[in-house]
Amino acid sequence: MKHKEISLIAENDTIIALAGNPNTGKSTLFNMLTGLRQHTGNWPGKTVFQAKGSFIYKGKKYVLVDLPGTYSLLASSVEEKIARDFICFGRPDATVVVLDATCLERNLNLALQVMEISERIIVCINLIDEARRKHLDVDTGKLSETLGMPVVATAARNGEGLAELLKVISEVVAGNCRPKPKTVRYSPEIEKAVAKLKPKIKNLLGDQVNPRWIALRLLEGDTSIEPYIKKIMKNKVRKAKLREVLA
């Protein structure tokens, strides 16, 4: 089901993924941006498979993919696997991580994990109106600086901040704004192991995936990425053979 949907996206479309915890108003944001009317219920897990829609901004078409809401990307559930696989191997042009402003600590966990996979990320602090109602003040400037990412505060329900979000998305896609994610530093022993594996992975797989992220997954014994890795390897081997034949 899922792969069929991905393949429906044309080669040259600009793809934006929407990731986020459950109940962050992700689907509401999706509806506001695409004009589609996906039903948004208030219970965890209702976007079971991704919805897809499109919008036009300054004459350019963007395809928006609403990923299932997850707490993490460690692939311990179907939703997590779908979301992770799309961000990592579906290679969207940008990923918008939607965070609940009223529950930032929990939500940042996911943002930090997405940042490990990809660089082209926009952090969207949604439900900022709820946060204000609860007297929570979020310092988006400081957050942006700490994460090394563009951060936009929105209240998707009433359209607040959406213009800014669209502008930032287009800038990231066009390369005018290059996020420099400040990723999580692990214990020295893990970092040492990652440093050791990274060049080997880069050598094997090329630039298609983030070698640091692959190294971390392999170190923690996550085998669910195996088919993808093999596929990338296969393509590389095939290309190498082709080059041999041509030479």
Partner: peptide, 21 residues
């Protein structure tokens, strides 16, 4: 270790950027 580090980082960042008025 990885899970713990990620959560601790998140905790630290949140503490620095969110204030309850």
């Amino acid at each position: 270790n990885i899970v713990k580090s990620v959560y601790q980082t998140a905790e630290k960042i949140a503490a620095e950027t969110v204030t309850l008025t």
